[in-house]
């Protein structure tokens, strides 16, 4: 086997994976996005039709894209989702950074145990963990029960079905995705650099700002993106914990697909959302790689 053939074989697997599980489904969704809704199974008209003269005709329906751009409803929902994702990712960063730093600075023997504890919640079902928050936050839940018993409040606090509950849920569920990449970059940090900073007269706080933080930036970016991207399309947590006012883009997609039965519009929306997320991140990535090579 020549090295070239071997290389091609190694590359073929991920390429086939991408083709089968990303490119092909994306092409299907894209084609439905240009279809016209119709009564039938499935509920849209095929793109390729035989014309009256028997020739194959391709009809692209641009009305979906047009409606998405003209009706501010969709842009507002998208902006709201981006804001929720940004706030959640920032909260994860604020909670996750001290955790990752503490694990990285912990004695050798402890680190694996602590990392295990971060990943441990993944061993139970995601839905179960979100539902557990309902038990904690509801009017007769544990938190209100404890506060009432202590006499700190007279009426139960409205915790469930609020933005607060939604942010709590998202931050809680996505925290490991922030801690792990942060830990990876923080644990590789050479302690000698901090010692040098201290020898040159930097106080610990200044040492952190001048040495630790800049060197951990790749971990911060990786963790932020790992939380931000799935949080934009998050559907389950806002549905279960958030208030009825939280019309996020995931819910809008559901409504178009199931309630209005407009598969073409839902597909067009999915494609636009994907482009909105992928393009800036791809640009950012290519610039980061260029900078790293320089």
């Amino acid at each position: 086997m020549t090295p070239r053939l071997r290389r091609a074989l190694v590359l073929a697997l991920p390429a086939a994976w991408m083709l089968l599980f990303f490119a092909a489904p994306f092409a299907i969704v894209l084609s439905i996005g240009f279809a016209e809704p119709a009564e039938g199974i499935p509920p849209y008209a095929p793109l390729l039709r035989r014309g009256e003269d028997g020739a194959l005709q391709l009809q692209l329906n641009m009305a979906n894209l047009q409606l998405l751009l003209e009706d501010p409803f969709y842009a507002e929902a998208a902006l709201r989702s981006l804001r929720v994702a940004a706030v959640s990712a920032t909260l994860c960063l604020l909670v996750g950074y001290p955790m990752a730093l503490a694990i990285a600075r912990a004695p050798e023997g402890w680190r694996n145990t602590l990392l295990m504890l971060v990943v441990l919640p993944f061993w139970t079902s995601f839905l179960l963990r979100v539902t557990a928050w309902i038990g904690l936050l509801q009017d007769q839940g544990w938190i209100n029960g404890a506060l009432l018993a202590l006499g700190l409040i007279e009426d139960p606090l409205r915790l469930l079905y609020t933005d607060l509950a939604m942010y709590l849920g998202i931050t809680y569920c996505y925290l490991p995705f922030m801690v792990l990449p942060l830990y990876a970059s923080l644990s590789r940090l050479d302690p000698a650099l901090l010692e040098a900073a201290a020898d040159l007269g930097a106080r610990p706080w200044r040492g952190f700002l001048a040495v630790t933080l800049p060197l951990s930036l790749p971990g911060v970016v990786a963790g932020y993106l790992l939380v931000f991207i799935p949080a934009v399309g998050e559907f389950v947590i806002p549905e279960l914990l958030g208030g009825p006012g939280a019309q996020l883009i995931g819910r809008v997609l559901w409504t178009e697909f199931f309630q209005n039965r407009d598969w073409p519009l839902a597909s067009a929306l999915a494609v636009v959302l994907l482009l909105l997320l992928v393009l800036p991140i791809a640009l950012f990535q290519s610039r980061a790689t260029r900078d790293a090579e320089r």
């Binding site: 809704p37 009825p244 006012g245 019309q247 407009d262």
Partner: peptide, 19 residues
């Protein structure tokens, strides 16, 4: 018709959001 249904689900969304 579908257009009316979208108008209805918009009303519903605004109702739920309280806006």
């Amino acid at each position: 018709p579908q257009a009316a249904e979208r108008a209805r689900s918009r009303v519903w969304a605004r109702f739920k959001a309280g806006r």
